[in-house]
Amino acid sequence: MYGILEFFKRNYFSLLFAALEFFSLYFVFRDNYYHQAGYFNSSDAVAGSVYKAYNGITGYFGLAGANEELAAENARLHTELLHADKGSAPPAPGFPAHGGNTYNRYFDYTPAEVLDNSTARPDNFMTLDVGNEDGVREGMGVVSPAGIVGIVVNTSAHFSVVMSILNKNCKVSAMLKKSGAFGTLNWKPGETDIHHALLLQIPMSEQLKPGDTIVTSGYSTIFPKDIMVGVLESYKPVPEQYFYTINVKLSVKFKSIRYVYVIKNLRKEEKTSLEQNTYKEEE
């Protein structure tokens, strides 16, 4: 007994180090990136409030740019509405079929302000000023007037954390607008900068050329179809596979992002439960 006490006394510093390091690394290596920041994240009331206060002071900078973007979006939406009333014409390019008379409405948009944002890390996140009480839930998509932004990974009552497209864990289904060939959009720190992401697994049979538009595929329940992702800048074949990897110039300027929308899919549960039941029957 005395021996054990003596051992602890002599090695307490190393033992304390081992214990605290174990706790820290446990949080790092829990491999679920929803909830990954479960206990410590910026949707926390303290962190959220600090960001909100800071934003209250510095939020006036860059408003001109944000206004311009929102005005352009308004103009586009007015045009779209005009066409929708006449019961004709698809939505304006790069913007989703989200409502109106010609389309069934099953996506809900919640406006939000970006309180905190990072672009310099391998895993980038944003903090938004909307949370549970505004109907925001994990797994919802986030878009800006310019295009796709990220996915909500964590919420509290008044704040939420968004995994931005500039996050190596963020994978989104995207397609070539002209042909519908789809693949996985993924950002690779070290390979792509903050203005580009890779679209993987596009079949080699596709005719590609720079400037082709890339939009969301709508195959997941997260994003509606046809939300702008970016344009094809270059492409190269994957060695020994019949796929191209496309370098996409993202349409959203992540460094200056200010106002976004959180998208709620009103038919998500219906769709996932139907799919799950189908898989169950097949087993």
């Binding site: 706790f23 446990y26 949080f27 920041a37 206990y39 410590f40 960001y51 905190d116 996140f125 954390v161």
Partner: peptide, 12 residues
């Protein structure tokens, strides 16, 4: 970590 959403990395 809470502010950076890096869960445990800065603590480690």
């Amino acid at each position: 970590d809470m502010f950076y959403n890096t869960m445990g990395m800065n603590a480690a």
